[in-house]
Write a protein that binds this DNA or RNA. Structure first.
Lengths: 350, 350
DNA sequence: ATGAAAGCGCTAACAA
DNA sequence: TTGTTAGCGCTTTCAT
């Protein structure tokens, strides 16, 4: 029987050894770098390597204890701009640190997330980074804590990046940014412009990111002694379409408001279009603000006032923190700051 | 001496065997699934597995010949919306097909790309997908062809997704979308509205994606018997900032034009802002069109006329094609169609 | 139904 | 400087 169709089955270290007329260990040593090898053999070996186009099997090396370390990250959907920026940070930093990067989109499916983490445990990933908000239910904590424990017991580490922290003592690293603080500052800014009825276009009611921003909205009202009308708090998700739909509903319901604060820039974008479609001028008739400061925010018309979140830095930091530590049980919690970026979409009320 | 600090070093199949009072092979069989094992031992083994929170080392399994297949993809920057959509398609499809997904951003660095592909060869990845345009130089073909060959000889396959094909005979799969055709249709549409001087905001002069779109622009002019003024062809890159800058330059140089076609929606976004900043009305004073049809395009004001590219489908298809074939030497080339999406940013000239 | 042993491709400790 | 041998953690014959 001839060779398996579909290409020369890859050559092994023994093939190389044979061809170079040396032992496998010698080949290993030559390839391994700094090791005393006579330059004659070295040349012969290298030639054989080149001839055979040989690369050592990384998995086998891993088993033998000298593998390329791997890092995994999990997110809902790489398509969301803020996710993409976090992912970018994670990937860049991981690569910089010599790690391979495994990704997984869960599409919001919890079981999928669980399965993937299990695979990563099997892969002996150095760390698993869970990116993006989530509902903070007891079930979430329970489940995530179990992940953290089993990862830790496998010598790996769980990192939550922009995701709710667990109780104390869980072996996780949490890197968050201040949703509540950012929203507080933003809404305070809007209130300072004289607005008193501010529509809030939120995300899923139990999603921590959305929730934090909502809390900031409420807190700012309280701090200014303004009553926040509950009717002005709408819920959807973080997509452009959600913003569009919610805005239309608000308009159709003839809700009264002079300003709109959207939970994300994407939501704001959809809302802006709905506003335009209704013949309203922004910020002439109604002010609008977003959250995230994605690059596109500048190109909306008017340019969107929003809150800047250092997403890429967040990702980088997550990796550095995760890899910078031994898999000790100590928990860790970092909170990154955000700041308001004032552009043209919010105007003082007359 | 006690355990290595930093967590119980992961347990092996032998630990499980010991605890269950069976041999390693039995554990393997139980975990392996369909194999005759007495339900008594099965229970004992499973219990030990649970107690130890054991997961078989995927790398070791791989060496033994039963690994999870892996697929890798490489792109310049996940942050670009169209890249992100391709990436999403790739990841979803790969996962669906039971493959692990490795990613790498090259940031445009060729050496980085080469290094990464080499790693993937070492990982015995089933396929490597290169995503996104590139300069189509002889050096590119040479280098890429070498990748393709060495991947093929390792039983793996190279896929070019939206990237220039190599000469005939190279063991690659190419999935492209029709840049020239899309641009042709778009520019023909703009010309049909009576515009005769159309500014083109292009990408890097040698980048195939940019080039294809430029060719379409030119071809449409030719077809309509309109002379395309070379002064109207500007070059930059695919970012929002590039569009912004180029547009400002064009305005400052007092170039004459009644319409602008941007090489991507991101470029169009930047250009739109520059136009607004200059006090120009779109499409009243000047018409504008983009390319890619990213979700955001609808939320620009006016909503952007553009060319729809099935990016996600492109990614999925790339994976399916790559995995659907044995690593035979046969080349393959698929070309996906695009279509113009007419919105509000192009108006007939009076 | 189960265990012992060989082997996957590699590295490393030990000899020579 | 180099080869031999013993692992790494797993699967899979081959016996029993």
């Amino acid at each position: 029987m001839t060779r398996k169709s579909g290409g020369a089955s890859r050559s092994t270290i023994r093939d190389v050894a044979l061809r170079a007329g040396v032992s496998a260990s010698t080949v290993s040593r030559v390839l391994g770098g700094a090791y005393p090898v006579s330059s004659a053999t070295r040349t012969r070996v290298m030639r054989a390597v080149r001839d055979l186009d040989y690369v050592a099997d990384a998995r086998a090396k891993a088993v033998a204890g000298v593998g390329t370390p791997t890092l995994a990250f999990v997110l809902e959907d790489i398509t969301g701009p803020s996710f993409a920026h976090m992912a970018h940070g994670v990937e860049r930093e991981a690569t910089r640190l010599g790690h391979l990067c495994l990704v997984c989109s869960t599409e919001g499916d919890v079981q999928h997330e669980l399965d993937f983490v299990e695979m990563m445990r099997a892969q002996r990933a150095a760390a698993v980074i869970l990116v993006g908000g989530s509902a903070d239910t007891p079930e979430y904590r329970e489940r995530t804590r179990r992940m953290a424990d089993s990862l830790a017991s496998a010598g790996s580490r769980l990192v939550l990046c922009g995701r709710p922290p667990l109780g104390p003592g869980a072996p996780v690293t949490v890197i968050e940014y201040d949703n509540e603080g950012g929203a507080y500052a933003l809404v305070a800014h809007v209130l300072a412009q004289g607005h008193r009825r501010i529509l809030f276009l939120g995300g899923k009611p139990d999603h921590t990111t959305a929730l934090g921003r909502e809390r900031g909205y409420l807190a700012a009202h309280r701090a200014r002694g303004v009553d926040a009308d509950p009717a002005l708090l709408l819920h959807g998700d973080f997509t452009r379409d959600s913003g569009h739909r919610l805005m239309r509903q608000a308009l159709a319901a003839e809700l009264e408001f002079t300003a709109v604060v959207a939970a994300t820039d994407m939501v704001a974008a959809g809302a802006l279009t709905a506003l335009h479609e209704a013949g309203l001028n922004v910020p002439g008739d109604v002010s609008l603000a977003g959250y995230d400061d994605i690059p596109f925010a500048r190109d909306l018309h008017p340019a969107l006032t929003t809150v800047h979140v250092p997403y890429e830095e967040l990702g980088r930091l997550a990796v550095r923190t995760a890899l910078g530590r031994t898999a000790e049980t100590r928990a860790e919690h970092l909170l990154l700051g955000t700041h308001v970026v004032v552009r043209d979409s919010v105007r003082a009320v007359e």
